[in-house]
Design a protein around this nucleic acid. Structure first.
Lengths: 343, 343
DNA sequence: CTGAAAGCGCTTACAG
DNA sequence: CTGAAAGCGCTTACAG
């Protein structure tokens, strides 16, 4: 038993047949006689032969794998329940269609650089807020891709959510309840983005908030905006700071359920009653939000559906079927127990 | 612009050089003159050429990707926070070492079948409770692998947690508090496993519980065992049933935090106070458990570390460095607010 | 029923 | 500094 991996050549030699026969034994049994086949299989077993997937893929021109091109390192992505949900949706389709899922984080901090190294039949591209050549690189590679959580790029298929409408609806709801001292707890857009304003879903949510404020003759200057990384601990910390400040809000509008959980944690610790003293809203409607106490009022976005559709569109593009240029999914306001009129 | 993807051949022809030169232009610039290089790059740009990753990988004999061989469909795996944590640990290492992560679910319901189709340099194998030839197939493929959450297989490297010790400790803790009417809320081991008793981590946890019971002259027959799929809703449902039964427990020992959350949900809905009327314990110590109300008493297992170690061991094996045959990580009982003496 | 050949796309010794 | 050749491992028309 040599240490080198056995190839179809070795098996062919051992069984006294050609490489074609070996391949047929594995992939096309009816093309060779039973006797030959058994001889080949026995030799393969003895040598510990297994067809090399890379050779197969190169030959077939297909990997049966779809890539998820991620905007951040894996450790951060997988910490975020939003991405778990999204990947679950994409995973459903992979399960169904027999694809594996390649998680592709930036290479040397560059999404662009990761593109040419992934052995996949297509990409779902996540959170590409500012296109820094990624779309061009993707087209150059000549494999299909679908954008999600991005700004719209002409000619690039995408699956989006009506973030603007969702943010408008929840803001309007709080305003209609009578709240005027609003705090917005937003996700940190990251250093790169600030120079030219918001991008992607966050920009749309901000616009939605502004829309609603304008309807009540208010502007963004009338709300307290805090931007933090999306973790429960950061939501907690930010809320403690907020409540310690001069003009405490009567409602906290979080742009993520995770941040809303942290906000409630902080308020409870400060013995401030939710919702009677301060209302709190989230965004996403993660499954925990229905179990959370108080049950969280939030904007539901169909995260799993988004993942599912993105993967479905991608796979039909891979198969050369119909093209789906853009798809916008609706949101809905889920009113539960964490909101009420201001005291 | 033809629809066929450009290859290094096309670029070579367009630039009037050999394919070697094209390769050098991309991978080894100093081997050719600046002028030639620029001519080649210009041609590549014009033709939209990008080196094909599959050709490159086949040649190099390396994919820069590690596979995670999963025991269930992606949709189920990604629904389970346990796996998110585990993948986060593995992801940390991938980030650091520049690997991508290929999620490889069973193919046609067979873990075995998925093995030869994944273009990876090695596998982390999860939850292989009963070895049905997977280990042999893995060895045959001739790439390194590390087992997680498995029974020990001779010669197969693994990273484990001291499930038995953890289960012993929490059971003993409840017993020492004075609880004698215990209900154990366990994960459903799946149809295949029951015939020959428990396997893997679940078997070890059961053994740990039995150890502790024996120390108080009790046996498994003295506890109420319920087995359900690991979701909060199932934990909730099972607990409602439990409390409706004849001899309601004074303590519920859940073998997963998720199930413990569901148990508390049910108790709260039944207006049964936790912990004063019924104590509840979990297993895992997910990050939410510290935020949960009442803060959950649970067995902490180092899930992220497990993922990290598995990936580290795998990568050093891929690099032909030292071998790490078996590693057992400790657990610890985290006592919080969900447990107290029986009423 | 079986084999020799071509080719998927790439890179790296080897000559010149 | 540059090119022709070999080869990574596979499969599938094409002959026989």
């Amino acid at each position: 038993m040599s240490s080198r991996k056995a190839t179809s050549n070795d098996v062919a030699a051992a069984a006294g047949v050609s490489r074609s026969a070996v391949s047929f034994a594995f992939n096309n049994p009816q093309r060779i006689s039973v006797a030959t086949r058994e001889r080949i299989l026995a030799a393969a077993e003895r040598l510990g032969y297994t067809p090399d997937p890379l050779g197969r893929m190169l030959r077939a021109g297909t990997t049966n794998s779809i890539g998820v091109l991620l905007p951040q390192r894996l450790a951060w992505i997988l910490e975020n329940p939003y991405y778990s949900r999204f990947l679950m949706g994409a995973g459903q389709v992979c399960d169904q269609e027999g694809y594996t899922l390649l998680l592709t984080p930036p290479l040397q901090d560059s999404v662009l650089k990761a593109i040419p190294y992934a052995a996949v039949d297509g990409f779902v591209v996540c959170g590409l807020e500012a296109d820094r050549g990624e779309v061009a690189e993707l087209s150059r590679r000549g494999i299909p891709f679908v954008l999600i959580d991005s700004d719209r790029v002409p000619g690039a298929p995408s699956v989006e959510v009506d973030d603007r409408g969702g943010a408008h609806e929840v803001t309007r709801y709080l305003l209609d309840l009578g709240h005027r001292r609003l705090a917005v707890l937003s996700m940190d857009p990251g250093a790169a983005v600030t120079e030219r304003g918001y991008r992607g879903p966050l920009a749309r949510r901000m616009a939605g908030i502004a829309d609603a404020l304008a309807e009540c003759d208010l502007t963004m200057a009338d709300v307290q905006l805090t931007e933090v990384p999306v973790t429960r601990a950061e939501g907690y910390r930010a809320t403690r700071d907020l409540m310690a400040g001069g003009r405490a809000p009567t409602a906290i509008l979080a742009l993520s359920d995770i941040l809303a959980y942290g906000a409630v944690d902080a308020l409870q610790e400060l013995a401030i009653k939710v919702p009677s003293e301060v209302s709190v809203t989230g965004f996403d409607d993660l499954s925990e939000s229905a179990w959370f106490r108080p049950r969280l009022t939030t904007v539901r976005q169909p995260i799993v559906t988004k993942g599912r559709m993105a993967a479905e569109f991608l796979i039909s593009a891979i198969r050369g079927e119909e093209q789906h240029p853009h798809q916008v999914l609706g949101t809905s306001l889920i009113v539960r127990e964490s909101t009420t009129k201001p005291a």
